[in-house]
């Protein structure tokens, strides 16, 4: 098979769910892997507040347990993104996408800032609502073609997936944090603790890049 992301170099079989590494998905997978390793290895930033009109600044101090939890969530988010990058099954892709959404909320869940918490709550609501078009789209893909495997879907023998169903999938992924639903995520970045918060942005960017390949392949 030659999909939208090039012909797969390697397959990993889990029953009916076949993971495949094409040049495109392999590149995205490596990007997620490298960033996850960075998250594991790096020390978090310490945010500074400069006081205007005076020669002074304050450092925001974050407890160790909070940092540990945030790192755990960032690593989980990285693993979920890696899974979403290489999976060869529409339903599995939807599951990984919703896992990324939950992890993104988890990364900033421990922040003691009312503003960030409010943004995370609104983001969580949109991510929750986004699962409806996402899984609905996957269900209609299964109904109209009779299969969920992306490898089978790339063949021309199957009936075409209706355009609006592809729209459902894209809208569901956009709800996980792409423009124009990005405002809450941008506010979540105000939380101290890069590089963990950057994982929120990178994961949704990667997932959006993958959904383009998924939709083109159908």
């Amino acid at each position: 098979m030659i999909g939208a992301g090039g012909s797969p170099l390697r397959y990993l079989e889990f029953g009916d769910i076949v993971i495949y590494f094409s040049p495109y998905t392999l590149a995205l997978f490596l990007l997620a892997l490298v960033f996850t390793v960075l998250v594991i290895a790096s020390k978090p930033e310490r945010q500074l507040d400069i006081a205007f009109g005076a020669d002074a600044f304050t450092t925001k101090d974050i407890g160790l347990s909070e940092m540990r939890f945030r790192r755990f969530m960032a690593i989980a988010c990285g693993l979920a993104s890696m899974g979403a990058m290489v999976t060869g099954d529409v339903f599995d892709f939807c599951l990984f996408t919703s896992l990324v959404g939950i992890c993104n909320v988890g990364i900033v869940a421990a922040v003691k800032s009312r503003h960030v918490q409010g943004a995370a709550f609104q983001y969580g609501l949109v991510a929750l609502a986004g699962t409806v078009p996402l899984f609905g789209g996957a269900a209609i893909v299964a109904a109209t073609t009779g299969t969920l495997s992306l490898i089978e879907l790339s063949s021309t023998l199957l009936p075409a997936v209706p355009l609006v169903v592809k729209g459902f999938l894209v809208l569901g992924v956009m709800g996980e944090g792409m423009a124009p639903f990005y405002a809450a995520k941008a506010e979540m970045f105000r939380a101290p603790g890069a590089p963990y918060v950057i994982m929120c942005s990178l994961s949704s960017l990667l997932i959006f890049l993958r959904v383009i390949e998924v939709v083109l392949q159908m």
Partner: peptide, 29 residues
């Protein structure tokens, strides 16, 4: 955000209803 997303979902659902019926395959997995 939530109203915008709800509006986007409503528009897409409207288009989906207009494009009904979807042809389902008999050969289900």
């Amino acid at each position: 955000l939530m109203p915008i997303f709800a509006a986007a979902c409503a528009v897409l659902a409207g288009i989906a209803i207009l494009s009904l019926p979807f042809v389902y395959t008999e050969d289900q997995l």
